[in-house]
Design a protein around this nucleic acid. Structure first.
Lengths: 223, 223
DNA sequence: ATTCTATTTTTTATCGATATTTTTGTTGAC
DNA sequence: GTCAACAAAAATATCGATAAAAAATAGAAT
């Protein structure tokens, strides 16, 4: 694994988890010391993060963390509604037996984490998110369009910045768990209409908490 | 304008116009001589081109030009159908007076190029494409979702790699010209349904030529 | 002739230093 | 006290060189 990759992953995580505050500037000169690498590496990693919509390049003024706002969240949710619904529909329609098996497996892994989750425990929440992502990825994996899947990926990551705050709500977790079960059932029955409907509801669930999410994050220590 | 930006633009154009053959490797060491800059600059420019879907990063094996294939074209068209249709719908519904004025202006510019176009003349075709893009950009400009507009942008550029071959067909140009006129009318009347319908047809028009496009490009000199 | 290994060449990833640009801070005039 | 002009400091963009890795080549052994 190349150094750039490692740094890229680290910075991405730092942004997603809010360790680099939204809209704060990412100064290569400063960051390089955190990772003990050259400034060039940081710059390359930041350039790649632009693709993910997590970093913004300001001409001659370096890079900064993408904003974190109610509008941004609304934008993400809206785009997800359009794209992910289509990805799921196509995937459910096109998935073969191997896909089914992998999906059942991913669901099992997710279910386990959902049972065991401890809201107070950061590591537990992280494990839950990993399993959650794996399940949703697998749900869309059979979609033939690589482009749509790439878009979906970007949106999923960007959305996680907001969702992780919501994960602390027991009500959300319970509701999400229901969704996942229903999603699996619909997918296995090849009921694309049902699967897309649940996907919609599932995505919209965080929206209700929008305001609370934003203000909760605003309290995160800056820089 | 920063050096990276300039090199980025140049390489992008080179890829879109096929001067760097699809799937060929982009060797920083070699390219840097073409532009008289350091290897770092090339690498950074290439990293940014990943966002545009024109360049692919191969771990420890540098970068290469994105593939050019019937599947890729089908993928692009499919994604455009989903995303651009939505962008246009939202834009037509949300556009204000300023937007209308700018749209009429862009249409005028496009119409002029369409009248004057000379299929044999490369500069003329390029001017046409610039005007074409400006018109379509403006058509979607009032869509409130920055994310969807960004996706649309990427797809438009990727699609152009294929479309530019089709531009040499008089039949396509004539049909496209009709589309544009109808699009403008529908947009001004705020007839979103009509506008999206035409957008659909417009996007699909190149698909018929798919096979011919691919083989025409295959004849392009490789590296 | 084919496969395996060792060696050379090419290419990539990475570094540390420097020129340029932006930001910050200070002083002096109105 | 505000503004402008200038000087100092910080940050960015850029370079050229090097270490590490991959690809190409050549030679030996089956």
């Amino acid at each position: 694994m190349t150094l750039i990759e490692q740094v890229y992953e680290s910075i991405r995580e730092a942004i997603v988890l809010g360790r680099y505050a939204p809209e704060s500037r990412l100064k290569a000169q400063h960051i390089k010391d955190d990772y003990g690498v050259s400034g060039t590496i940081i710059r390359e990693a930041l350039n790649r993060l632009i693709s993910d919509g997590l970093v913004i390049a300001n001409d001659r003024r370096g890079f900064s963390v993408a904003p974190f706002s109610a509008e941004d969240l609304a934008d993400i949710i809206q785009a997800r509604l359009l794209i992910e619904v289509d990805v799921v529909r196509q995937s459910v329609e096109a998935g073969d037996d191997d896909w089914e098996m992998a999906l059942v497996g991913a669901y099992h892994g997710l279910d386990k984490q959902e049972q065991a989750v401890d809201i107070e425990n950061e590591a537990s929440l992280r494990a839950l998110e990993t399993a959650n992502r794996a399940f949703h990825d697998q749900l869309g994996a059979a979609c033939p369009s690589a482009t749509l899947r790439a878009f979906y990926n970007q949106l999923f990551t960007r959305h996680y910045r907001y969702r992780r705050v919501a994960l602390r709500e027991q009500a959300i977790l319970t509701a999400a768990r229901e969704d996942h079960k229903t999603l699996l059932d619909a997918a296995l029955k090849r009921d694309a209409a049902r699967a897309t409907e649940i996907t919609r509801t599932h995505i919209l669930r965080t929206q209700k908490f929008s305001d609370r999410l934003i203000s909760a994050f605003a309290k995160t220590p800056t820089e």
